[in-house]
């Protein structure tokens, strides 16, 4: 049973991870949902003790470990919350970028990058003339006596 739970968790996570790497943002959300399921099922699998539901327990009864269940409840709710937020983000991104593909999102970044080139060159200049720019700019020329 341990192996079975571990395998299920692994498949959920692995498949989720694979989806996260997709271009389609919706699939990315699906990936996060799967990974969230993986966490919950792992928490339940981490129960110490199995049996009937821990309700009105008489001493000595074999019951299912209630603590992981409480944790799983919390994890489920938090999963719902975060997935909803992620969905909203994706939705907003789709509205703004007019695409659900990640690559296109990165393209806007490239434009920003290109705009920075001028400033980068300015930065480089702050440390002095580039060697290839040739020459002792401020040191006197080698034949310094020459009047201009």
């Amino acid at each position: 049973m341990i192996l079975a739970f571990a395998l299920a968790a692994a498949f959920l996570f692995g498949s989720g991870a694979y989806l996260l790497l997709k271009r389609d943002l919706i699939r990315m959300v699906a990936g996060i949902m799967l990974i969230s399921q993986c966490a919950v099922v792992t928490i339940i699998a981490a129960s110490l003790g199995r049996g009937r539901a821990a309700i009105a327990v008489a001493p000595g009864d074999p019951v299912s470990d209630p603590l992981p269940q409480a944790l799983a409840l919390t994890a489920l709710v938090i999963g719902l919350a975060t997935v909803a937020l992620l969905l909203a983000l994706v939705h907003r991104a789709v509205v703004v970028f007019r695409t659900a593909e990640q690559d296109r999102l990165a393209a806007t970044e490239a434009a920003h990058e290109a705009a920075l080139e001028r400033e980068r060159r300015a930065d480089r200049e702050e440390v002095g003339p580039a060697p290839e720019e040739a020459g002792p700019a401020e040191e006197e020329p080698a034949d310094g006596g020459r009047a201009r």
Binding site: A9, C38, A46, L48, A75, L85
Partner: peptide, 21 residues
């Protein structure tokens, strides 16, 4: 930020489950 850190959070949660186990 959200996608990457959610991934990190769930990895954390897996470890919490492990720590309890």
């Amino acid at each position: 930020f959200t996608a990457v850190n959610l991934l990190g959070s769930f990895i954390f949660l897996l470890s919490v489950a492990g720590a309890y186990r």
